[in-house]
Computed example of a mutant assay.
Amino acid sequence: MSLIVTMGETVPGREIDRVVGLARGNVVRARFFGRDFIAGLRNLVGGEVPEYTNLLSESREQALDRMAKHAEELGADAIISVRLTTSSVMEGAAEILAYGTAVKLK
Rank of each mutant, 00 (worst) to 15 (best):
R83A: 07
A76S: 06
A98D: 03
I96L: 12
L41F: 13
I79Y: 00
R42D: 02
E72P: 00
G40L: 11
G40I: 03
S57H: 14
E95N: 08
A71K: 02
L56E: 09
G8P: 00
A94G: 08
V49W: 05
S88P: 03
M90D: 14
E72V: 10
G34A: 13
A94D: 06
T6A: 04
R18W: 09
T10Y: 08
S87Q: 14
M67P: 01
S87M: 12
M67G: 01
E15T: 15
A71L: 01
R35K: 12
T86R: 12
L105K: 01
L56D: 06
T101S: 03
L84S: 00
T10R: 10
V19H: 09
S2M: 11
G25Q: 11
A76D: 01
E51W: 05
G100D: 00
M67I: 06
K69D: 09
L74Y: 01
K104F: 08
E72Q: 13
K104A: 05
M7H: 13
G21N: 05
L84A: 03
G75P: 04
G46V: 07
F37Q: 12
G100M: 06
L55N: 10
G40N: 13
G92W: 06
V28N: 05
L97G: 00
F32Q: 13
S59E: 08
T53C: 07
L74K: 03
K104G: 02
K106P: 01
I96E: 02
L44I: 10
I38P: 04
E91A: 12
F37K: 13
G40V: 02
S2Y: 14
A76Y: 07
R83C: 00
N54M: 12
A78K: 02
I4M: 02
A71V: 01
G34T: 09
K104T: 09
E51Y: 07
S81I: 04
D17C: 05
T101C: 05
M1V: 12
E73I: 06
P12R: 13
D77F: 06
T6V: 04
G25F: 10
G13T: 02
A93Y: 01
Q62L: 15
V11E: 01
S88G: 08
R18T: 11
T101D: 00
R66K: 13
E61V: 08
S57T: 14
L56Q: 09
F32G: 11
E61D: 12
L84C: 02
P12C: 05
F33E: 15
A23I: 02
R83H: 07
R31N: 11
T10C: 03
T6L: 01
A93C: 07
E9V: 03
L64F: 07
N54H: 11
K69P: 00
S81C: 08
S2C: 02
F37T: 11
E72R: 15
F37C: 08
N54G: 08
E48F: 12
E91G: 05
I79R: 04
N43M: 13
V19C: 04
E91F: 05
M90C: 11
T101G: 01
E72K: 15
A68Y: 00
T86L: 10
N26Y: 15
R60N: 01
